[in-house]
Design a protein around this nucleic acid. Structure first.
Lengths: 128, 128
DNA sequence: AGCATAATACGATTTTATTCGTACGCAATT
DNA sequence: AATTGCGTACGAATAAAATCGTATTATGCT
């Protein structure tokens, strides 16, 4: 299995990535609009952040026309795993099970979702 | 249920808290020693951080003798939940199930642990 | 008492992240 | 061709986190 590259987006960068994962590709304005729903920082702030992310290769961009179009350069899954790992190491004594138990215990999870998880567990059990 | 207070330890503070959760109580030196296994920053850095954490009430301390003894003032569980929440919101579209599936899918989990999780799921299902 | 050791206090610096103002360019409209 | 609107570039200010050096104090030993 390929080792994930250690990418470390900051909080703000994560917010932007989330939007991009959702929209697949977007201009700064589109991203900024979306962010403005929760957050209130200026347009140039979002712009600057996205420029920095471009330098860091967290996103790619097409600047062939005036309005640049950005795309995520790191996958949602990889990034999720990165953070999961870090969290498990820092906070859950290295045990992913501890994290799962905690997450299930404290968030409320619908019947349907519990079934989905059960199904996955069944698969995992048979694989061993 | 009581709402958890919104505590936001930084990365470094988390590392220190982890040690304290483990040891229950400890002097700066003990904490620093432990941290030094993974990290290399000076003693006074750890000291300063712990002093700041004291101001922020992340830890309590007994300074009745020369060597101050620190204890965590926030519980591991609360802190875990805080971070879980933030992570679920930021990265998992608000779905704790998505996080659980990801965690189970990519970390490897022993048979025994799978059983533990199954058991919890059974409990949760019956509670609804 | 004098000295060495180990601790705290705390200001200052450095580093990283976030935010914004302003300059400037391009293209459509008047 | 002037004006306006929308875009990027980029330096600079601000804020937050981490690091460290130096001063000072307490304690135990000779």
């Amino acid at each position: 299995m390929l080792k994930d590259k250690a990418i470390k987006p900051t909080e703000s960068e994560l917010e932007i990535l989330s939007v991009l994962w959702d929209l697949k590709k977007a201009s700064v304005r589109m991203v900024h609009e979306k962010l403005s729903e929760h957050k209130d920082s200026g347009y140039t702030t979002t712009l600057k952040l996205m420029q920095i992310m471009h330098e860091k290769k967290l996103v790619t961009r097409d600047d062939s026309s005036k309005t640049h179009i950005y795309e995520p350069a790191v996958s949602k899954e990889n990034t999720q795993n990165q953070f999961l790992h870090r969290m498990i190491d820092n906070l859950f004594s290295g045990s992913s099970t501890e994290l799962v138990l905690q997450a299930l215990g404290h968030q409320n999870t619908t019947q349907e979702e519990l079934l989905k998880i059960e199904a996955l567990i069944k698969t995992l059990k048979s694989k061993q």
